[in-house]
């Protein structure tokens, strides 16, 4: 602790950002991580703290369209950004393509890595409709699964991409 710092310097900060589509305002400590804020202030406990040093990816959230480690981002850095977490994937009780595919392909074992895996995959599919297997592996290489279910997880992302783009095609045809 830095005893000599005047208390007013350590005052809480007010930040606002878009969280899963809603504009939010929150008071934070300057040294609070984005992960802590999302979990503790908003009760969104999908993102997990695994290693806390950016090696496991369990805390992956999507910030301005990019997958980032929530444990390596200060909450203060979220100010003005758009943030997506695993809780924002489903809408009105309907699972997202990725969530469905993870269930269908057995991409979930203990589940600890799953929210992070889903968010890395979500950032990828938002950027690229039909990623190659290599690109998927690369996008998920910052997410560790200690159940070692990688094959099923990569299958699931491939499957989700396929179904998502087929649905998009069908919708375009029906229009």
């Amino acid at each position: 602790m830095n005893q000599e710092i005047p208390q007013d310097e350590l005052a809480d900060l007010e930040i606002s950002f878009t969280l899963n589509g809603s504009q939010v305002r929150v008071s934070i400590k300057p040294w609070e991580t984005a992960l802590d804020t999302i979990r503790n202030k908003f009760g969104l406990t999908g993102a997990k703290e695994g290693c806390g040093i950016g090696e496991c990816g369990a805390c992956t959230i999507v910030m301005d369209g990019k997958a980032v480690n929530g444990c390596l981002v200060l909450a203060a850095q979220l100010d003005g950004r758009t943030v997506e977490t695993v809780e924002g994937l489903s809408s009105n009780g309907t699972l997202d393509y990725l969530q469905k595919a993870f269930l269908d392909k057995g991409g979930v074992q203990c589940g600890f890595c799953t929210p992070g895996m889903l968010m890395s995959a979500k950032a990828l599919l938002d950027e690229c409709d039909q990623p190659s297997k290599d690109r998927i592996t690369n996008a998920l290489s910052g997410n560790l699964c200690r159940c070692a279910g990688y094959v099923q997880i990569i299958d699931a992302v491939e499957d989700a991409a396929l179904i998502k783009s087929k649905d998009a095609e069908n919708q375009a045809v029906n229009r």
Binding site: G54, A67, V68, N69, L72, S120, S141, G142
Partner: peptide
């Protein structure tokens, strides 16, 4: 690092 690291 990883994609998450390279993104920041």
């Amino acid at each position: 690092g990883s994609l998450q690291i390279r993104n920041v």
